[in-house]
Amino acid sequence: MNLNERMNVLFSGYKANPKRLVEDLIHFIFLILGLITVGCVLIITVYLIISGLPAIIEIGPLEFLFGTKWASTASEPSYGILAFILTSIYGTSGAIIIGVPIGFFVAVYLAKMANKRFKDAMKLCVGVLAGIPSVIYGLVGMTVLVPAIRLIFNVPDGASLFAAIIVLAVMILPSVINVSLSALEAVPHEYEEASLSLGATSTETYFRVTVPAAKSGIFTAIVLGIGRAIGEAMAIMMVAGNVANMPGLFKSVRFLTTAVASEMSYSSGLQRQALFSIALVLFFFIMLINAALNFIKTRSQKI
């Protein structure tokens, strides 16, 4: 059959039943709508690579990633982003170390020990905490936390990595609590009943039976927290001081995200391209996190 004949067959089918043409068209439209997300991901990836790679090549990948000096506006500019990478890693780890345990214990309490009314109230609390815009965290951090750090730790400027870690820890709390909570709630009651009947106390049961059974969900919560912390820009821009130092707990620092946000408005030429390269590095980290999430998901499905 050549193409013409095929078209004829196709159209005669539609002629006999014109409704089918409409249905097929609508099916096609929905397929396109469904594929839009895929298109968006592809566009974002391609655009970031296209606009991020030239500067990395021009500066030299090693010099870019492991250079310790960032002086984009100097007469002899130097573009090394090791300080930003390390700051992002330290800041995120700090936020995880503070935020995850708090979120974890709250989730265990809400899932297992709280009564229904208190749990609903707390869920609303956590929802509000999640919904508060990040700039408000930045604002409160700027006007309350930063001066407090300056007074308590007696440092010249409170705007520091430490302030950023605290703000990030608060900001990841809601997602850690919510995701762990639903994982803990999904554990079958039989597990707990078996443990209780063997003589374990209820607290022991919750922490030694329920929590290990919800392990993959809790890991997901941690990884999601990492993702949120590493991607947050505006709140930490307001409290971290924004100077391109190597990270130190009470030093003014710049994260990967804030490096992009703070110079974008006035950048040009190679400096601007270098900012896109930083975004590309950030994107790479986010993709690693996504891969980790997927890995946890497929592994828990197998079990």
Partner: peptide
């Protein structure tokens, strides 16, 4: 397979930080 790809894409989108959306939005 198509469903999986679309769902993976939508999960990826929801994990991308807003500053990157800002940059891509600016370029695009």
């Amino acid at each position: 397979k198509v469903v999986e790809i679309i769902e993976f894409a939508s999960e990826t989108l929801s994990g991308i930080p807003s500053i990157i959306y800002g940059l891509v939005g600016m370029l695009l």
